[in-house]
Design a protein around this nucleic acid. Structure first.
Lengths: 199, 199, 199, 199
DNA sequence: AATGAATGAGTGTTCATTCAT
DNA sequence: AATGAATGAACACTCATTCAT
């Protein structure tokens, strides 16, 4: 692997990155269905055929964008989890972190939800991603329950799923559907979350 | 208006009804995007072109099916609301009623959510429908708050929106995405709902 | 089935016929691979999409043209067979009839041979068609053999296949590849055919 | 021309040979139309773009493979011709030799026939190759005729063309189209050939 | 010579909608 | 009202060939 090869790879990598950038723009502006490969290439400043040098098809770029986005989201959430205060503070921080992260990717999230609606593969990804969030919250609730902070009549799994759903769908409602909301609403959500599990 | 005319209208009405039936079947089986007018007509036992005698376009039949479905859902929810027990019982009944009604229409609901994802008009309908549910729950919570059953630090609107979202999206998760759930889960949901607003 | 319906069908039938005519022209001029649906429609004076009202795809029109052609060829050959003279006269007549019929369809035959070369379905048709000719000649030779006109050391099947191949491929060579030939050559072919089987 | 240059040339020669090998494989497996340059390079273990260092285009490699094959075939046939027995023995040997040689190259022959069907250049090659065979057989028949072994009413050219066609197309039928045949069939073919020219 | 990324022309097919009867 | 043939716009994907290193 000489310098030339690295250069070649570097060029390819740049093209690929341009395409990803272009694809993200187009998907965000038009949604998956109205996104045209030709426009993606135009945005990337790349010839039409080059798209297929780097991606198998339209689904493939999209999947890659979504994977990247979900990895980022997970990273953010994991970073949050490290600090260990009381449950209420952790829930508050987690909710804020999630909503902030969601907002940043809101336009791509919108398309993700759209595609999950008709593509079996993307639905899989969607369910898997939610599974991860459910698990994290379930573990936390179970821990608090074992510590005596959460009543015994709460089923950690059901609560985790329901409350994660509440937070997650609220993010969609606010940032995708554009329902108006204020900053204090996050605190209200956290309060509802905490009270729901008896904290 | 002679007998022939009446007959004609009756015949037209029957054709229209057949088309609605056929459309529902096809939308439910294939989703909006893969539903073909030709298949709708086949199912309805009606000639290809007759579709446009009764509906302006594909969106129009769909909108009509959705309106019908939402009207039905609202009727069910209204019927529930009449009986007046304590808040917990009312919430329990409302949740059960909603989930049962949702399940019945789950396949069309799935398509509704799909279309709301890319059709501005259907998104409007979607938001309006949720608005109605939010309002109902907000009014209830506000009432309980005024009656001293719900703490003052709960914002009725935010709580209504968040908890309706929780219930609504849980229905989607269960009946559209097919997440496994048991009968007792409804009670857990109700418990979370009630505790969240301090009941 | 009222008059109107017949008229409708008649119009469709006309469109279909135009498309078949256009397709034949284009296939003959360009071969299968370079034949474009759009040009077929242009020739037929019909809108692009109308092609698919009448044919499933490019292969389908082609198959229909070939079937029609082969039916015609078989009809001609069957008509020849009726007259019953001596073997030599019959062979002469059959050869002449075949070559004349082949010449008439030479340009489509060329495309048939082409497509049989890469399309499994068309290869099937090709083999089936030859099978019919082989069988006819085998029966004839076997009959003459039983009548003592053909020596016993001739295997009717092998002879039929080989000699039908000779005639058939000569037709291709003359009328598709354009090898020069004179009228008397048919008599030479017949002489070779007859002598080959000992007549 | 220094050592390095020689090495370079040797390397280039090896690459070229690999590409020819790869091309033959791919053409035989997929036919001309579905053969992809990329797959040829993969088989050859050579980089994608290197193909064009050695061949002008897809047609060029193919032409080279066909030339090689035809040269081989001709060599075999020439070797046969040397031994001089009676006509029947010579015809028998030639037929056997041809069929054996054809069978060995059958898969490439199939593609040759395919391409001759749509490529004017390859059709030229095809006609030229047949011309050589016709000529050889014509010369032989003419010789036998002059020696009084073949009747005067046989036209050597027409007979040569027709009978070479019979043998050649039988080879195609057997080894490309896969029509079943037994070993004794060759003798039948030879018998038909001989009788046809009055031997 | 070798590499492999970049290029972009080319087309069959689908299907919602229109319209003549 | 009903029929069903006609319409035509729209678009992803392939792959031979070029070209910068």
């Amino acid at each position: 692997m000489c310098v030339t090869e690295v250069k070649r790879q570097a060029r390819a990598e740049r093209t690929r990155a341009s395409l990803l950038r272009g694809a993200r723009e187009v998907f965000e502006e038009r949604g998956f269905l109205d996104a045209k490969i030709s426009e993606i290439c135009d945005r990337a400043g790349v010839a039409y055929g080059s798209f297929y040098t780097h991606f198998a098809d339209k689904d493939a770029v999209f999947a890659e964008l979504i994977d990247e986005m979900l990895r980022g989201l997970l990273t953010v959430m994991r970073a949050e989890a490290l600090n260990g205060d009381g449950p209420e503070a952790r829930i508050a921080r987690a909710n804020r972190a999630y909503l902030r992260a969601y907002e940043k990717s809101a336009r791509l999230m919108a398309v993700f939800e759209q595609v999950a609606t008709f593509s079996p593969a993307m639905r899989e990804t969607y369910l898997r991603a939610w599974g991860v969030f459910y698990d994290r919250q379930e573990r936390a609730i179970r821990g608090w329950q074992e510590a005596g902070l959460v009543p015994a009549d709460i089923d950690p799994r059901t609560a985790a799923v329901a409350l994660a759903t509440m937070i997650g769908r609220t993010a969609y409602t606010w940032f995708v559907l554009g329902r108006p909301h204020e900053d204090g609403d996050v605190d209200q959500l956290t309060r509802l979350y905490c009270r729901a599990i008896g904290i």
